[in-house]
Design a protein around this nucleic acid. Sequence first.
DNA 1: GTTTGTGCAAACTGTTTGCAACTTC
DNA 2: GAAGTTGCAAACAGTTTGCACAAAC
Lengths: 138, 138
Amino acid sequence: MTNKYVSLLRQYGFKVTHARVKVLERLEHATKPMTAQELHEELADAKMDLATVYRSLNKFADAGLIARVQLGDEFMRFEFAKHSHHHHIVCNSCGKVSEIELCNLDALSQDIAQKTGFRNITHHVVFSGDCQDCANKS
Amino acid sequence: MTNKYVSLLRQYGFKVTHARVKVLERLEHATKPMTAQELHEELADAKMDLATVYRSLNKFADAGLIARVQLGDEFMRFEFAKHSHHHHIVCNSCGKVSEIELCNLDALSQDIAQKTGFRNITHHVVFSGDCQDCANKS
DNA sequence: GTTTGTGCAAACTGTTTGCAACTTC
DNA sequence: GAAGTTGCAAACAGTTTGCACAAAC
């Protein structure tokens, strides 16, 4: 087993296991941040325990290999770390998630720093609205 | 019992109970969004059940009397509805929450609408950073 | 062969719900 | 007195954890 994910795991000092490779692989091909349960279902063939999925995700996220994403519901989601600043927009009716590359919050963050005295300000944004498909249906 | 909160409850068509008045009152005087558990603890004198707190909060939030706020942890928080657009900034180390009145996301939302086809776009933002007190300590 | 990961079941946490008793109007 | 609310206990959902066994290095 010597592929991209194996190297990535080695690079981060993780032991290489079947489960971890599968999780990483699935996450990199995801078109939206995924929950532990979604991953578990989609990787049913690999017969790994849900607890193992959670443990892998938390390790990877703590190490910065993947990112935790909250989209406003009760689930924690995870996405392959892209290292490019972006946000998400979620459809109010079908739940579809798209990525947003635009962000103009840096200037605002500086303003906030000045006014509030906070330093090293970061932000988490989730947009929501009605996607084109859903808007057309109604 | 004829005060501000009683009127407010009547106005929204809610029955007026001791518990509801207490919850509303406490929320209006809060300096930050509060969790159900915090409210329950702080209203210990009123001896109301945690379930009652949850039920009140959810009713009020559904009716628009108060707003649900997620700050990035596992708790749902609630704040008295202010009807003025604002966001929050949370200190990474002490958890202090401050309100942010500035927001320049409307132009960006229009851009996003054009590029993605989403309509009626709204946004939820949480800033975080190191507050002045904590930054000075370290 | 030592260290680390896994499966399983049980625990934990925030929140919701069913139901009988009680308030509110 | 009809309708809605409460307290209590039990249920629920997402997530974490303890432990014996298994896999990785």
